[in-house]
Write a protein that binds this DNA or RNA. Sequence first.
DNA 1: CGAGAACTTGACCCAGGTCAATGCCGGTGG
DNA 2: CCACCGGCATTGACCTGGGTCAAGTTCTCG
Lengths: 230, 230
Amino acid sequence: MPNFREFEPQELRFVSSFKAGELVAEVGTTLLSEGNHSAHLYTLLSGWAFRYKTLQDGRRQILNYLLPGDLIGLQGSIIGELQHSVEALSPLVLCVFQRDRLSELFRNHPGLGFDITWLAAQEERMLDDHLLSLGRRTALERAAYLIAFLYQRAASVGLAASSTLYVPITQMHVADTLGLSIVHTNKTLRKLADRSLIRWLDRSCEVLDVDGLMDLAGWDGLPERRRPLI
Amino acid sequence: MPNFREFEPQELRFVSSFKAGELVAEVGTTLLSEGNHSAHLYTLLSGWAFRYKTLQDGRRQILNYLLPGDLIGLQGSIIGELQHSVEALSPLVLCVFQRDRLSELFRNHPGLGFDITWLAAQEERMLDDHLLSLGRRTALERAAYLIAFLYQRAASVGLAASSTLYVPITQMHVADTLGLSIVHTNKTLRKLADRSLIRWLDRSCEVLDVDGLMDLAGWDGLPERRRPLI
DNA sequence: CGAGAACTTGACCCAGGTCAATGCCGGTGG
DNA sequence: CCACCGGCATTGACCTGGGTCAAGTTCTCG
């Protein structure tokens, strides 16, 4: 995987011991949920998941998507309480870490500590982009942005063969990400399809023209950079 | 300041040497701007600022507000490129750090490295809340949330005498934070005032009933916790 | 073959946007 | 001292993007 940086040998040894085991989760599993205090810390090894929050009356907002290489539950491990939930979009394989050894990681492997901060900063940047989208883009622009974003993320971990992406999401997920109703989401995706930018397939989406999407959204894309993996 | 954790003596020594100087900025100064590669890293010592992004056609989205104790420019220092701008809302005093010594900090002072990650996780959590707000709350709920949020943040650094808060923002800032037009923002703030939850004063806002605001927004508030200061 | 899920589509409605005008300072130049 | 100007806040009239409601249409799966 060319996009990931190499470990130092002693880092590799530590990470192996830090790892408490692997976990497999089915589609639809709620891995972590809001308010949980004893949350675990995972790295996603394969599959798609998403983070979300809900209001008391059930309105849901998807915050971001999780792909292989992403940490899951970092907020909980660092601050103590998790304020969002995480659900599997596809079958997942996770690497489970021993949360209480996180300070040991920072103490003895500063490079890994830095990597964790790097990942947090990266997440922050994605959230900045999403905020711009929800606050200031129109429905059509938002949809274009989201799909281009997911495409780029998938591509960066080798999940997008040629220019075709199959994301295991429903229009309901798209709606809850874009802050739109399902009906309007449907009509908006249709418009993108009419412009032959995408093709929507049941529970997934084929991207026909990433550049067209990025252009429509006025989005520059994610900076492509060597990333850490923990 | 009871909310901040204590330094270890050697951490204090390092931080003093890490500090390259102090900087004072006027209202309206753009401290950092989008796309900048050689960005500095600061800690805000006093004053209010905000982070924002813009679309090519000028639409602006405010991402978050910066208060004393917050790091400014962390994304730039960690990832290399800053994707947002930062502007002063009031006169600021900043502590300037030597960005290139950040890895030294992680190496020799793991506690401080952890603190930086803590701050990043905290920022991430605030952005999660903002996303929920933009995506799923109505204009009135959003406004209530924002003001309660700012009030709590100000209170946590001792900037809110009794239940009165003076935030140095215009309705334009509120609009660009909530993703609304100025006109509608004005009408929405008026509704809050009519319910005697707030009182809007030129370029600032007095909070009359925080609990009422939080209740209206369906927001639980920021967890009150001992925080690091760097 | 029936029951869900997910996706579609049309008709109608309303929250919030746009336009336009007004008032209210505080600062500046004369 | 006054006239003028440029930000900001305010308000009313009107319009539209996106929400809500209500039917379908496929599929898939038991």
